[in-house]
Amino acid sequence: MSRIIEFQNVSKAYGDLQVLKHLDMHVEAGEKLALIGPSGSGKTTILRILMTLETINSGHVMVEGDYLWHQKVNDELVPASEKHLRKMRENIGMVFQQFNLFPHLTAIANIEQPQILIKGVDKSDATNKARELLALVGLEEKENHYPHQLSGGQQQRVAIARALAMDPKIMLFDEVTSALDPELVEEVLNVLRLLAETSDTTMLTVTHEMNFARDFADRVLFFEKGQIVESGPPNEIFKNPKEERTRNFLRQIIGEIP
C-alpha cells in the first residue's frame, strides 16, 4: 500500500479559532476512513482542505506524493497556482451535507454536465455513464426529475453519482446524512456501504452515525480540538477505546461503552 494522503504538521485557524493544531495524519490508497468526534473538532475542515475549499495556514498536505497547497518552482516551494490546484482536484471528489445538486438541471444532467465540460466526454458516453451510476444508487427511474422533485435521500444519492462520474481516486463524504430526515438516512448509508465494499477508491467520511462508521471504515479517527486523539480499526475504537476522551465521547453518543 502507498500513502495517498498525508498531512504534515498542518495548522488552520479561522481568526482566533484554531481548528487544526499541528495535525499529522496519513491515509493509505484504497483505505476507507471514518472521521468521528464532537462538532468543531476539525473533521470537516480536513475534507474541505483536501477539496481545496479551504487553505491551510502552515504545514504541508500531500496528495499522491505531490504537494496540494504548494508547488515546486525552480526547486523552491511556493503557494500553489490555480492551474496546479485544478490538476490536483482531478483526483478528488466530494459529497456535501446539503447535496448541492444544480437545481436547474435534471438528475441525469447533473451527472452528465461535469463529465462533458470538465472531462471532455461525448454526450452519449456521459449519458451511458450517468445511467449506470443512477442504477448503482437505485435511481434509474428518476433520471428526468429535477432536484426539487426528489426527496433529500434521493438528492444525496444523485450527488454521490455525480461525484463518482468524475472517477476520483479519493472521495470525501462530509456528514452526508446530517441534513436528512431520519427515515431517509439508511438509503444513503447503504449506498456508501456498497461503495466501500465494491470500490478500491480511497474514501474519507465525516459522520455522526457510529453504526455506519463501524461497517464502513477500515480505520476510525477520533478527533477532538483539532487533533487526533485516537486511531484504529473500528472494533478497537468502538469496543475497547484506549483514551478516556474517546470513551467519554462514545458514551455520550451511543450510551453504552465498556
Binding site: 475549499l53 471528489g93 446539503q98 444544480f102 461535469p114 470538465i118 455525480r162
Partner: peptide
C-alpha cells in the same frame, strides 16, 4: 454550496458562472 459544488467538480470560473 453551488460555488463549492462547481469547484469540487473542477469547473473553471467562467464555467461556474455560465453553467451553474
Amino acid at each position: 454550496g453551488q460555488w463549492e459544488a462547481a469547484k469540487s467538480l473542477n469547473y473553471r470560473p467562467y464555467q461556474t458562472m455560465r453553467y451553474v
